[in-house]
């Protein structure tokens, strides 16, 4: 018997499987989150999800956060990786600088951005006023706030994509590029026909990491707006917290959690399957 498995399995059981099972169980109750009693309500909480406009808003926002951040991070991350690929002190310094925000807590980073976007005493508005313009209420509309959240999250975590693409670029043998050049491929054509296809495993890896991070986004939204104005910038994660504690609907919040879990699982399985197939192709 291989006892070496036991600690790992016990940890997974305590910290992952047990909470997951408990969470799914709660989704079938009307628990308020703190009382000693709870009643079984069947699938009521799941049925309610389909008629809840707030949940729909949060779900759409979550998809925007997930897909928006992922797309931007791929484009910017790849561009940075291509620009900063190779040796040289300045390139190494630039790479470190771009990766640095990844190491900062998202809460701290969000607070810094909050100070940037604040109406009064905010750095951006102070600059606008110094240049003779009026202040702008950056966080006063839903679409505006969602856009700002996407940009903040993208800028913080673009370093991860850059590093993955750098690893991918450095994995492409020089001889492949030379062979392509001999065949007449150069510049954009070389990038499009040779580099990009060979980066497909890196693209899929980067997309999975960014997509899951985006779909679970909590910190930036919570710190920047708390889901406001109204409910307009909530992600499913922040709405779960709001429903669980604020609205004392722990059962319903758990149903949202299960829905988010299924969404992330489906997306992840789809992408992992794609990666597996892509890997075999290559």
């Amino acid at each position: 018997m291989n006892l070496m498995y036991v600690p790992a399995i016990a940890m997974v059981a305590i910290f992952m499987i047990y909470p997951l099972v408990q969470g799914v169980g709660l989704a079938f109750t009307n628990w308020d989150g703190y009382s000693p009693t709870k009643a079984f309500v069947g699938f009521d909480n799941f049925a309610r999800l389909f008629n809840d406009k707030t949940f729909l808003t949060a779900l759409i926002n979550t998809l925007i956060y997930g897909v928006g951040c992922t797309v931007l991070q791929q484009i910017i991350g790849l561009a940075l990786a291509v620009a900063l690929d190779g040796a040289g002190r300045s390139k190494a310094f630039a790479r470190a600088l771009i990766y640095l925000p990844v190491l900062v807590s998202p809460v701290v980073m969000s607070m810094m951005y909050y100070f940037l976007f604040q109406y009064d005493r905010g750095a951006l508005n102070d600059i606008l006023v110094a240049l003779g313009f009026d202040r702008i209420a950056w966080l006063s509309t839903g679409p505006g706030t969602v856009t700002i959240v996407v940009l903040i999250n993208t800028l913080q975590f673009v370093g991860i994509s850059m590093v993955i693409y750098l690893a991918g670029l450095q994995g492409i043998g020089q001889e492949i590029n030379e062979a392509a050049e001999v065949d007449g491929a150069r510049g954009l054509r070389l990038f499009r026909s040779i580099t990009l296809p060979l980066l497909r495993p890196a693209i899929i890896s980067s997309m999975i990491i960014n997509l899951i991070g985006g779909l679970k986004l909590y910190d930036v939204v919570q710190v920047l707006t708390g889901g406001g104005p109204g409910y307009s910038s909530h992600s499913v994660s922040t709405l779960i917290a709001r429903s669980y504690f604020g609205q004392q609907a722990a059962g319903y919040a758990s149903a949202m959690g299960v829905a988010l879990f299924v969404l992330i699982a489906v997306v992840s399985i789809f992408l992992v399957t794609r990666m597996d197939r892509t890997g075999k192709d290559i």
């Binding site: 308020d32 006063s140 509309t141 839903g142 889901g227 406001g228 104005p229 109204g230 409910y231 307009s232 709001r242 604020g246 609205q247 004392q248 609907a249």
Partner: peptide, 20 residues
């Protein structure tokens, strides 16, 4: 009912901010 406060906050907030 106990637990309404948060919705009261968010709905009034959405009127003040013009989101609803």
């Amino acid at each position: 009912p106990n637990g309404s406060w948060n919705t009261m906050v968010a709905t009034t907030d959405s009127v003040i901010s013009g989101q609803s």
